[in-house]
Structures are given as structure tokens and as C-alpha cells.
Design a protein around this nucleic acid. Structure first.
Lengths: 144, 144
DNA sequence: GTCTTAACTTAGAATAGTTCTAATTATCAC
DNA sequence: GTGATAATTAGAACTATTCTAAGTTAAGAC
């Protein structure tokens, strides 16, 4: 789906470079924040976390950088139901489980063959670039 | 998943009644609009269509009624990527294909066993009430 | 090294989509 | 009909996001 690359801060500079973009302190800190706590934060939550390290950053920059990371395929933007977009640095194929009682979101790894089976339901003439699978329900125990 | 019921205007009164809600002209017209043109309209688009029949309806009522229909399981609210919520009166299990070139959304019927296979990837402790599958890509030919 | 140019960040204004509030109107049970 | 409850309405308020225009930083040409 996307080229193999390990989800580390180092990957950032490489990916940006291949897209003709610069690695800036803001982009690094924001990517670091996403890697550090993978709880699918909103842009506002990222903003709050980044400000502890970089108090002068602006919210507009957070939006800009998140968008850049999404463009570089280092981060996925996640939208289930109305409400703010959430950001996820997990590059492996995975689904999302949205726990309605806690409001939290969990990554569910997907075996490669499942995505093939799912895509097989598409009639001829439909060419899918990506598939998203979202569960909604309750998780008994666990966290994230 | 939801009780068998045919997606006709008649179903509306029954469903509302069993939820202790009233069937009003506004709710009927809005549901009719959704059934008539199943192109996953936004609340604004529903508002525009409803106004040709009922020029005095307010946008707030459109939002209220759509929410009511969603609560009654007569309509699904669909959210892929930031942007307005779209509404879909298709009650059969189906996925959505979002055509990036035209911006349109197509229903893809799902065989019952596929949803089982997909749900089977959930680890113990995860109890899913619903699954949503969204494709993104290009549809060559077709419309809707 | 300095100049030029383009990329990036910033603050605040603007916009889009949705929800809230308070007042009015319609409907139902009696 | 009367009272209680539900639904609708207009407009204000709110949230999430994007836009704008100015300022800053970095990279490459010379």
C-alpha cells in the first residue's frame, strides 16, 4: 500500500525530502508527538501537547504540518462521525475500533488477505486505492 | 443487523411510532426526499430539495429530522473525511465507494459472510455493534 | 558571504457545518 | 375543549478548519 519505511522520527526527514519538502522543527515535534502517544489525538490535542515543548507554535501550523504529514503518507487522517479529524501514525494496514463507552479508538491489525477479500466485493469498474474499516462497539478491558 | 423492514415511506410511521415519536409532515417529506434520490445528500442538499415542496421548513428542522431518522435506524449517517455528514436510506448491509474524481458516493452491497469474516479479526474483548467499510478510488463508467 | 527566491510559520479573520436557545405551534390524552 | 408534551422555527452561538497577508527562515546562485 505505502512503501516500507519504519515509523521513526528519522523517517520524517527522508520522506519530506523525497517530496521536495523541508524538515522543520515544527514538523519534527508534531510527528514526535504523534509517535509518542498513539491515541488518535485531534489537531487541538496535538497543539496542546506540542506547546509544552514549543510554546510559540501556532494552531495554524499544527494544521499545516498535520496535513503535510498526511500528504507524505506518514500519518493517516481518521474521520468517523462528525467531529474533529484524528491523526494516526500507524502505517501498517489496520482497522479502527471505536469504543462508544470510553470514546477511545484502538488500532486493529489486519491480515493482508482480508483486505483482498474485502476489495473482491467491488464490481468491475470500481478501482479502489484504499479501504477503511471501522468498528463501533464496546471494548471490555483493554485501553489505549 | 436491524429488523427487516422495507424502505418505504410507510415504514416511517411504524418506526417512529415504535420509538414513541410522531410522524410529522416534515419528517415524511425529508424521508421521501432521501428515498427519491439516493445520492447521499448533505443536510444542506436535503434542505434545498425539501424546500421545493415545503418552502417554510427551517434548516434546524432538517437537522433535527435527519437525526431522528438516524435514531430510528431508517437512515445511516455517513462520514468519510472532514466535510458535511451525508445521509443514506439504504438499510441493507453495504459499503461505500467514494469516487475521488467525481466526488460521488456509491453503495456496494456486501454478502453477509463477508461482514462475519471482517468481524472475525477482532481480538477477544472487542464487541462490535456495527462495521463500516469505505473504499476510496475511481469508478470508470457508472454513476449515481 | 550576500542576494534572491521560495518555503514555511504565524496571528487573526473568515468560513462551513452543526448545535443550542427560547419562543411558538401542533398534537395527543383526557 | 383543556392541559401536557412533542415538534418546529429563527436566529444566535459554537466548533473545527481554512484563508490571508505579513513576517521569518533556509537553500541555492553567484
Amino acid at each position: 500500500m505505502s512503501p516500507a519505511i519504519s515509523a521513526t522520527p528519522d523517517a520524517l526527514a527522508q520522506r519530506l525530502a523525497t517530496s521536495g519538502l523541508r524538515s522543520t522543527p515544527q514538523r519534527e515535534v508534531i510527528y514526535g508527538v504523534l509517535l509518542k502517544k498513539r491515541d488518535h489525538p485531534t489537531a487541538d490535542e496535538v497543539y496542546a501537547r506540542v506547546r509544552t515543548d514549543m510554546p510559540t507554535i501556532s494552531l495554524a501550523t499544527v494544521y499545516n504540518c498535520l496535513e503535510t504529514l498526511v500528504q507524505c503518507d506518514l500519518v493517516r487522517a481518521v474521520n468517523f462521525e462528525r467531529g474533529p479529524t484524528r491523526y494516526c501514525p500507524n502505517l501498517r494496514p489496520h482497522a479502527h475500533f471505536h469504543d462508544e463507552s470510553s470514546g477511545s479508538t484502538h488500532d486493529i491489525d489486519l491480515p493482508a488477505d482480508l483486505l483482498e477479500k474485502v476489495s473482491a466485493v467491488l464490481p468491475p469498474g470500481y478501482d479502489a486505492k484504499s479501504v477503511e474499516i471501522t468498528f463501533r462497539g464496546r471494548a471490555t478491558k483493554n485501553s489505549s
